[in-house]
């Protein structure tokens, strides 16, 4: 009787690993598995200060090379035309649950009070890079548009395409009004380059890299994410099961 018990002991771990994939295929189990995100979000938001600032760094602490990730060039004719005219035809649309829908040029965005921050970018894959970002606070833009109290989320629409559709991401209005949430126009002191999301990239410090939408062309205030994409709030969330919260 000892032998089967021994093999049971060592095979237990192997069976557990193999069984996980079977379990994850059961809809009810999948629901529990995916609820971990809600638990982390609930715990972090209940226990921690939602206004806490992400750590900021000095120039000496910056990455020598900040790697670009995701789309490195949207490559569409419309985007190429904007690059060709140095984004003078670029307009940022601000709409949805706002009193005054806006269409802002790059000059108008650059004329707004800007915040500069040296922060760490954490990719969901595990790497980090520290860089300097500068641009108006998203809160300033939303206030200029007269965002309504009924708005609970802010959705970003981008110039780069995934599966033929514009990339999109979303954050809630609390994070949207966080002082470090900015529409970066500059990186490391120079205008954003194409690989890093020119001309406008969202910086939402305290969340993972895929939330930092590049090539932002539209900002829409909404009451619910249900009608956005497949309803989970972002391209990766809808198509690859990434978590919307992305704070851990």
């Amino acid at each position: 009787m000892i032998l089967p018990r021994r093999s049971l002991l060592t095979a237990g771990a192997g069976l557990l690993l193999a069984g996980c994939d079977k379990v994850a295929a059961i809809p009810q189990a999948r629901k529990i598995l995916f609820a971990g995100e809600d638990m982390h979000r609930g715990l972090q938001r209940a226990l921690l200060d939602r206004g806490a600032l992400a750590p900021e760094f000095t120039r000496e602490q910056m990455s020598p090379i900040f790697r670009a990730n995701g789309t490195r060039d949207p490559g569409t004719p419309a985007y190429a035309a904007m690059v060709a005219d140095q984004f003078s035809s670029y307009r940022l649309a601000v709409d949805g649950l706002v009193d005054r829908p806006l269409s802002l040029s790059l000059d108008q965005l650059a004329a707004m009070p800007a915040r500069s921050q040296i922060t760490r970018h954490d990719c969901v894959e595990g790497w980090s890079a520290i860089g300097q970002w500068q641009g108006p606070m998203l809160g300033t833009v939303l206030q200029a548009a007269g965002v309504r109290r009924s708005a609970r989320y802010v959705v970003f629409t981008c110039a780069d395409l995934y599966n033929g559709q514009p990339y999109y991401e979303s954050i809630d209005t609390v994070d949207a009004f966080h002082p470090q949430t900015i529409l970066a126009l500059k990186m490391n002191g120079a205008r954003l380059t194409v690989p890093h999301g020119a001309p406008v990239r969202l910086r939402v410090e305290r969340q993972l890299g895929y939330k930092h939408a590049k090539y932002v062309t539209g900002i829409t205030a909404v009451a619910s994410l249900a009608a956005i994409g497949k309803g989970k709030g972002g391209y990766w969330e809808d198509n690859v099961d990434y978590d919307w919260y992305a704070g851990i």
Binding site: L48, A54, D122
Partner: peptide
């Protein structure tokens, strides 16, 4: 490793 935790507990 959590960017959210790093802000709250640097």
């Amino acid at each position: 490793l959590s960017p959210g935790m790093d802000a709250a507990w640097p």
